[in-house]
Amino acid sequence: MPLDLTLPTPLAYFAALVQQDEGLPLLEAAAALAQDDTPDLDVEQVLEQVDQLADRLNQRISPSADPVERLRAVNQFFFADLGFAGNVNDYYNAKNSYVDVVLHTRRGIPISLAVLWLELGQSAGLKVDGVGFPGHFLVQAKIEDGCVVIDPFTGQSLGRPELHERLEQFQLDRELAHSDATLAQFLQPTPPRQILARMLRNLQDIHRTRRDWPRLVRVQDRLVTLLPEAWAEYRDRGLALAQLGDIERARADLSVYLREAAEAADRDAMAERLSALGGSAD
């Protein structure tokens, strides 16, 4: 029987990576997002580059180092020695979400920087998590009986006052924003699947704003693959496909949305859109 040496498509490769929550390889799946723009990107080479950085970092850490010393070493290496930082001059460039580009330029947005910081933190023996804080992704490391929360965009350690202040920007009720219970809720670890979804939704916003429908459809393909029961992603893909003139696929996606999202507030509007495309909500 002849061997099938055909390489998987970028989407099929991504689908294989995110098939299960257990053992989902965050760094590899995040690096694979760039294949939408660079299909021949060698993701293994990207992973090897990160492994080399991890080796350099761990040569600096004594086997007897405690978590505080390890955290200091990670931050010194990542922010000071390697110079990773936020891309303040071109924040809304899609390339800030591509791990291979961030590795090369040392500039990114909070969540792409966080993915790299988390990988190095784990390699250094720390218990680290991503934190889907409102408006700005953070990371945290467990230290003894507490946690240190870090802004991967700046390298700044954030205490309760700074975190409450940031939370107040997204809470209408100031008292609620300054509640420790509210803060604890927003500091819950974000699982890899949700980190990838947040990365993709950043790209979604960029491509939709620029009316870049082909790129938006590719992002929606990944979101539907990643979150197969997130019905709004089918709607958004259907609307983008309609902009591209791919009417048959657009009708299919909008039909799925109307069938599954029975209580959606925009149901009537989407039914009208489907009808205008020659489809039926029945």
Score class of each variant (00 low, 15 high):
residue 5 L to K: 08
residue 6 T to N: 06
residue 6 T to D: 06
residue 7 L to P: 07
residue 8 P to K: 04
residue 10 P to R: 03
residue 14 F to Q: 03
residue 17 L to M: 09
residue 18 V to A: 03
residue 26 L to A: 06
residue 28 E to C: 05
residue 33 L to H: 10
residue 34 A to C: 04
residue 34 A to T: 00
residue 37 D to K: 09
residue 41 L to D: 02
residue 42 D to P: 01
residue 42 D to V: 03
residue 42 D to S: 05
residue 50 V to R: 06
residue 50 V to Y: 05
residue 52 Q to G: 13
residue 52 Q to N: 12
residue 57 L to T: 04
residue 58 N to W: 00
residue 70 R to D: 00
residue 72 R to M: 13
residue 73 A to Y: 03
residue 74 V to W: 10
residue 74 V to Q: 07
residue 79 F to P: 10
residue 81 D to H: 11
residue 82 L to Y: 08
residue 85 A to R: 14
residue 86 G to F: 03
residue 87 N to F: 07
residue 90 D to R: 08
residue 92 Y to I: 04
residue 96 N to R: 07
residue 98 Y to D: 03
residue 106 R to V: 10
residue 107 R to V: 07
residue 110 P to G: 13
residue 112 S to I: 09
residue 114 A to D: 06
residue 118 L to V: 15
residue 118 L to H: 12
residue 118 L to F: 09
residue 120 L to K: 11
residue 123 S to W: 03
residue 125 G to R: 02
residue 127 K to N: 14
residue 132 G to L: 02
residue 133 F to R: 07
residue 134 P to W: 00
residue 139 V to T: 15
residue 142 K to C: 07
residue 145 D to R: 04
residue 152 P to S: 11
residue 154 T to M: 06
residue 157 S to D: 12
residue 159 G to A: 14
residue 159 G to L: 08
residue 167 L to T: 01
residue 167 L to H: 01
residue 168 E to L: 11
residue 169 Q to R: 15
residue 170 F to E: 11
residue 171 Q to R: 14
residue 174 R to H: 11
residue 174 R to V: 09
residue 175 E to F: 11
residue 178 H to I: 04
residue 179 S to N: 06
residue 182 T to V: 05
residue 182 T to F: 00
residue 183 L to T: 00
residue 183 L to F: 00
residue 184 A to P: 01
residue 184 A to W: 01
residue 185 Q to H: 13
residue 187 L to P: 04
residue 193 R to E: 05
residue 193 R to D: 06
residue 200 L to C: 08
residue 201 R to H: 07
residue 202 N to P: 12
residue 205 D to K: 12
residue 206 I to L: 02
residue 207 H to T: 09
residue 207 H to C: 09
residue 210 R to L: 13
residue 212 D to V: 05
residue 213 W to H: 11
residue 218 R to P: 04
residue 220 Q to G: 13
residue 220 Q to H: 10
residue 222 R to Q: 13
residue 223 L to R: 09
residue 223 L to V: 03
residue 224 V to N: 12
residue 225 T to V: 01
residue 227 L to I: 06
residue 231 W to T: 15
residue 231 W to C: 10
residue 234 Y to S: 11
residue 237 R to T: 01
residue 238 G to E: 08
residue 242 A to F: 10
residue 242 A to C: 11
residue 243 Q to E: 15
residue 244 L to G: 13
residue 245 G to E: 07
residue 245 G to W: 00
residue 250 A to H: 11
residue 252 A to K: 13
residue 253 D to V: 07
residue 253 D to G: 13
residue 254 L to Y: 10
residue 256 V to T: 15
residue 258 L to S: 10
residue 261 A to Q: 09
residue 263 E to D: 14
residue 264 A to L: 08
residue 266 D to I: 13
residue 266 D to N: 12
residue 268 D to M: 14
residue 272 E to H: 14
residue 273 R to I: 10
residue 276 A to T: 15
residue 277 L to M: 14
residue 280 S to R: 14
residue 281 A to S: 15
